[in-house]
């Protein structure tokens, strides 16, 4: 069995595991599994939602679907946390746990507050298991626009709404830059992976392929992570996901002044959208970035809609479906 599939199966309780083992679809196409107590088991498969029957069949009729019990959730939570909820206090406060294989499990239930802060979560009743699938090669078409004449990466910002594949694109860019190619030497990449989304580290070991010259600081706040990487690992390129606050801006300026190249992602619908946010606007005005890559999911997740230079001038624009990831077809 595929390692990622095996890791995913291990986080399911006996009943749901049996159902998922009997499911007759391509595992690579499953994007997420939704488990909500007393409601049907749903999966999102190739962009569409299906209910799952007790025998593992996909159906649109929720009356015939298997209904998740409290025991199913209890078992899954126990397995997801490796029988050790106490070891995931911080993750529970954030609302998700990353497991082996890089899969990310979102949880919801009763929040226990400690003053103004979230202390922990009890009575977990809702799970969203987002399966991690790498899309190797998805950055191949984009990368030539992001390299200068010496084949060094420009300071690049990937802009996209949630769920459009910016982390997947970033991950593949890291992998390709780190590994190098016939035309381009590999470079040392430092990844400040605050939410374990890029490398999906499990016990410090990246579950996703980030290349042979990549160092990952897992679970470390981005701003501190960038500083630490510069001081300790001497990266030529620093990659961070979902930047947005002033501390990030300061750390990025420091990184750029240290001679590092920067790749970052940010939530946004358009170039204009990021200019409406004070911190991001300041980054644009200071011309910290030389390239902006805009993604959308109008046709499917992962479509590059345009690439702009540091001044916001479009240097490439989507035509047809050429830039969408082939692997998601």
């Amino acid at each position: 069995m595929d390692v990622k599939k095996e890791a995913f199966m291990k986080c399911l309780g006996s009943t749901v595991r049996k159902i998922m083992e009997g499911i007759q679809v391509d595992f690579c196409g499953i994007q997420e599994i939704r488990m909500r107590v007393h409601t049907p088991l749903f999966i999102r498969y190739r962009g569409r939602e299906y209910a799952v029957t007790e025998t593992g069949g996909l159906t649109g009729d929720i009356g015939t679907a298997y209904r998740i019990t409290r025991q199913d959730i209890k078992e899954a939570v126990e397995l997801i946390s490796n029988y050790s909820m106490y070891a995931y206090e911080e993750e529970l406060r954030q609302g998700y746990i990353t497991i082996a294989g890089g899969h990310r499990i979102g949880m919801a239930g009763k929040i226990i507050m400690d003053g103004r802060h979230i202390k922990t979560m009890r009575y977990i009743s809702f799970l969203n298991i987002r399966l991690s699938h790498e899309v190797k090669g998805c950055a191949t078409d984009v990368l030539p626009y992001l390299l200068d004449e010496k084949s060094r990466i420009y300071h690049t910002m990937i802009i996209s709404p949630p769920g459009c594949g910016k982390t997947t694109l970033l991950r593949d860019m890291i992998r390709q830059l780190s590994n190098g190619s016939c035309e381009r030497e590999g470079v040392t990449v430092g990844v400040a992976d605050e939410r374990s989304e890029i490398g999906a580290c499990y016990k410090g070991e990246p579950q996703n392929d980030l290349g042979i010259r990549t160092d990952v600081l897992d679970g470390c706040p981005k701003a501190q992570g960038m500083m630490m990487l510069i001081r300790t690992m001497a990266p030529q390129v620093i990659a961070v996901d979902e930047i947005g606050n002033r501390e990030d801006l300061e750390a990025m300026e420091y990184a750029i002044n240290c001679g590092c190249r920067l790749i970052a992602t940010v939530h946004g619908d358009s170039f204009q959208d990021i200019q409406d946010k004070p911190v991001l606007k300041s980054m644009v005005e200071k011309q910290l970035f030389d390239r902006f890559v805009l993604l959308n999911n109008r046709k499917k997740p992962g479509c590059v809609s345009s690439i702009m230079d540091g001044l916001g001038k479009v240097i490439w624009q989507q035509e047809g479906r050429r830039s969408c990831w082939k692997d998601l077809d």
């Binding site: 126990e78 946390s81 029988y83 909820m85 106490y86 070891a87 206090e89 202390k119």
Partner: peptide
Amino acid sequence: HLGYLDKRMQ
């Protein structure tokens, strides 16, 4: 009781 609670309670 093992494994279920937070570290302090554990």
